[in-house]
């Protein structure tokens, strides 16, 4: 009995030391900021997709407007042809989907559920082992399993949890470090694409406003009050939409996403550094706020454009 007691004491020490050494930099606290990073990313990617898939529609609307204001122009194949290739749009949407998948997997790595599941499986194993020990004891009188099972499974559980934590850290480090250049390249391209797509939109809205303004000024004396009111409302809505586009810079959200991802890379390289963790959590706060703001502005613009 003394030997067993002594083994239990040492077994406890055996798993306590690695827990103290490795457990202090658990990936568990990362699940919350990385989860928020994912939510913000999904919002940004959804808005970016809208910009990309509507680029050709916008140019088509512009050409129809040109045909409308210029009686010399005919509606032909050039009026409806796409400016931006379907392959190019597809490549962009695919890249966005891969970024989304990458962020989803980061969440999966730091999900504390895997450690909980492991604990539960080992506890089940422990109770099954104790059941087996009890059956063997009934049959042979041997108490070895019943005496050692709790200590051994306790030790195994702790070591397994440490191993899982180490694997998670390794996976997170590999993920963000290896992915960083590709993520940065995609975000850099997207940042520029969105800036230009927003500029296209601004030009379209401003030129349309000016066309309608000129028409109104030319025809205003012959219009009845109802028609005048309707056209003025239309002009007002268009100018509101233009101002909204000027005040929002969708590429800025991508910039804050890049900053947050960069902070995550720095943090993953040194998981024990609390300053880097705080810097990452702070960058995610900024990114989340800008992503919500951008989504709200885009939604308001869509409402105005209806």
């Amino acid at each position: 009995m003394k030997t067993i007691f002594s083994f239990r004491k040492h077994a406890a020490l055996l798993f306590l030391v690695p827990v103290l050494v490795c457990g202090c930099t658990s990936t568990q606290p990362l699940s919350e900021p990385i989860g928020r990073f994912r939510t913000a990313t999904q919002g940004v990617l959804a808005t970016s997709k809208e910009y990309l898939v509507n680029m050709n529609r916008l140019e088509r609307e512009y050409r129809f407007m040109e045909v409308y204001v210029d009686r010399q122009k005919e509606v032909d194949a050039t009026t409806t042809s796409a400016v931006f290739s379907a392959e190019g749009i597809h490549a962009r949407l695919k890249a966005l989907m891969i970024v989304d998948l990458y962020v989803t997997r980061l969440v999966e790595i730091v999900n504390p559920e895997s450690s909980d599941r492991l604990s539960k499986k080992i506890e089940t194993f422990n109770s099954d082992l104790l059941g087996l020990g009890s059956s063997i004891k009934t049959m042979t009188g041997d108490e070895t399993i019943s005496n050692y099972a709790p200590s051994v499974t306790g030790l195994v559980k702790s070591l397994s949890l440490i191993w899982v934590e180490q694997e998670k850290k390794k996976a997170l480090n590999l993920a963000v470090t290896d992915a960083a250049p590709a993520v940065d390249a995609i975000l850099s391209l997207l940042e520029d694409d969105l800036k230009k797509a927003n500029d296209d939109r601004k030009e379209y809205v401003l030129i349309k406003y000016n066309e309608l303004r000129r028409t109104y000024n030319r025809e205003r004396k012959s219009l009845d009050d109802n028609e005048r009111k309707k056209r003025i409302e239309e002009l007002k809505t268009l100018y509101d939409a233009y101002e909204m586009l000027c005040s929002s810079a969708p590429e800025g959200v991508i910039g804050s996403m890049r900053s947050a991802h960069d902070s995550m890379v720095q943090m993953a390289r040194d998981l024990g550094d609390t300053h880097k963790y705080r810097a990452f959590a702070g960058a995610v706060d900024v990114f989340s706020a800008r992503a919500s703001e951008a989504a709200a502005v885009y939604k308001a613009f869509r409402e105005l454009s209806k």
Binding site: R92, A95, R105, L174, A175, A182, V183
Partner: peptide
């Protein structure tokens, strides 16, 4: 477009490694 394709391909490989982990 080529820039997107190359970066997406590279990220896809990392996604595969993360899946393995």
């Amino acid at each position: 477009t080529d820039g997107y394709r190359e970066a997406a391909e590279s990220l896809q490989k990392v996604n595969g490694q993360i899946r393995e982990a």
